Measured scan of single mutants.
Amino acid sequence: KFGRVHERAEGPAKILAIGTATPFHWVDQSSYPDYYFRVTNSDHLVDLKEKFRRICNRTMISKRHMFLTEEILQKNPNLCSHNEPSFDVRQDILVSEIPKLGKEAVLMAIDEWAQPKSKITHLVFCTRSGVDMPGADYQLIKLLGLSPSVQRVMMYQQGCFAGGTMLRLAKDLAENNKGARVLVVCAESSAIGFRGPSEDHPDNLIAQALFGDGAAALIIGSDPKMGLERPIFEIVTTAQTFVPNGDCHLALHLREMGLTFHCTKDVPPTIAKNVESCLIKAFEPLGISDWNSIFWILHPGGNAIVDQVESTLGLEPNKLQATRNILREYGNLSSACVLFILDEIRKKSGREGLKTSGDGLDLGVLLSFGPGLTIETVVLR
């Protein structure tokens, strides 16, 4: 008597548009150690500064975009301390800036989509910054002038794996609601975790050397309108798992001094060791076991992770080039990073006149991972 209210779509979910945005301000990685130790009044920690310089040199990052300028840091000195309470200051900045950054990426996506924004039916927003109620999803709806009846899902504090999570959720929403057009937004800022150095917490140096700011937005829907919408990728399958006891290797915690970062040297080999089982589960039903026969979007948690995944799986050097390019130009953008790589690989395919948006290949994989050593596996066509 009370059956399904919403009719299912006929076809699989497809990515119809991609937009990205970054803050205008950026830092050069080669000179960042001098800048970082100067603005945090830590130049007296000579040995720690040299250690940080070595870490920065190993990241293979060229530059990173950041909202925090020297002027902002001078006005808010607690942000430059390692342990002073600064959460309220971070909140005041990020509750406002995260939706604005997301808006810039959304406008780029809508411009490519070339359809009225009134056709957006759902919003899925993800960030690890600016936790608030009502959330960044609500603020973004107002900034864009979208209908208050847009169906919203707000996900805070997920971390680097969440780019894949957003695709998984959007696929379910698009395929189970005929005519749905799902706006996916990942907006991230390193301002939540920026803090001064400490000899007692070397993990913090890794975070300060890796993370950048950026937002990515996608429009996802099934059954694209012929002649009006141009699909870029099809989302074939999605899956999530985590490595048992992985939280002892990688975890982040909200504290009075901001978001703290805990990471062990076992993260790269542990991820590399567990990736292939995810690939087998995803691609065995499709008859694929040659990992060089697919295109790759791999989250660059750090250069060591990229190198070890490449080595463990025997990947050809060009397979992870898009990942390395984004890491070099932006650093680790947390949940937004794989979506930047997705954009990079389709643009490169277009520039080179390849037959598909995925490096000329039919199928590919998007792998994202993060806290708890959670792994998201997304098969794309």
Rank of each mutant, 00 (worst) to 15 (best):
C80S: 11
H299F: 11
N245E: 12
I375W: 15
V338Y: 00
G19W: 07
D362K: 00
F340Q: 15
D92G: 07
N274I: 11
K117N: 08
D359E: 13
L339W: 12
T20R: 05
L146R: 05
N332T: 14
L254W: 05
V338D: 13
E276F: 00
L94F: 11
Y330I: 06
I72A: 05
T237V: 04
V378E: 15
S129I: 02
S147R: 09
F52R: 09
H122W: 06
L315R: 05
Q91G: 10
P23R: 04
T22M: 07
I280C: 15
W296T: 07
R381C: 01
A336V: 03
A17V: 06
P268L: 09
I341R: 04
S81Y: 02
P244S: 10
K281G: 10
N325I: 11
K14A: 15
T237K: 15
R90K: 14
K49D: 08
P231C: 03
K100E: 10
K1G: 10
T127M: 03
D362W: 00
R4G: 13
A21Q: 05
K49E: 10
I375R: 15
G358W: 04
N292F: 01
D111T: 09
N332E: 07
D43R: 03
A21Y: 02
Q29W: 09
G364N: 00
T323L: 01
D111M: 05
H262Q: 10
G372V: 10
E97V: 08
T312Y: 07
N57W: 02
H122K: 10
I120M: 06
D290A: 04
H249K: 15
A282V: 13
F24P: 15
T20D: 09
N83D: 11
G130Y: 06
G358N: 02
C126S: 04
R8P: 11
P317M: 00
L68G: 06
T377K: 02
Y138R: 11
L367H: 15
V306R: 05
S311D: 04
N76V: 07
I375E: 11
S277G: 09
F340H: 00
C337Y: 05
W291Q: 01
E376Q: 03
P99E: 07
T237L: 00
E310V: 07
V379N: 14
W113Q: 00
R351M: 01
C126G: 09
I235M: 04
A109S: 07
N83W: 10
R53Y: 14
R328M: 02
D34G: 09
K14Q: 15
I345F: 08
I15G: 03
M133R: 05
R351H: 00
G145P: 01
M66F: 14
T377V: 00
G3W: 07
E344K: 10
L366C: 10
G301H: 01
V365T: 15
F261W: 09
V365Y: 14
V378L: 15
I110N: 05
P23Y: 04
K100S: 11
P371K: 09
W113C: 03
L333R: 06
R53G: 05
P33C: 03
A114P: 01
L327V: 07
E329L: 07
C56N: 06
E112S: 03
L259E: 15
L146E: 04
T264G: 13
C248M: 11
H25R: 12
A9V: 09
R64A: 00
E234Q: 05
L254G: 11
H253R: 03
P268D: 00
L259K: 15
F295D: 06
L259Q: 14
V309D: 05
L259G: 12
E10Q: 03
S277P: 04
G11N: 01
S311T: 13
K100C: 14
G360K: 05
L313Y: 03
A272R: 10
D43N: 04
L140K: 06
Q308P: 04
R255F: 02
I15M: 01
L146S: 00
L228T: 02
F52V: 03
Y32N: 03
R328C: 05
V379M: 13
I232P: 02
T59Q: 09
H122N: 06
V27S: 07
H262Y: 11
G364Q: 01
I93W: 12
M66T: 14
L16D: 02
P268F: 14
I341W: 06
K100W: 05
G130I: 02
A322S: 05
D111Y: 05
D111R: 12
P317R: 12
S334A: 05
I98W: 03
K142A: 07
A17S: 05
L279F: 06
L327H: 07
A13K: 00
H299E: 13
A9R: 09
T312F: 07
T59A: 11
H122Y: 04
K103E: 11
N78S: 00
E276R: 07
G258T: 10
M60Y: 11
K14T: 11
L320F: 11
K49I: 04
T356I: 06
F125I: 06
H299D: 11
H122C: 03
V89P: 12
I93M: 11
V365A: 14
H44V: 05
L367V: 02
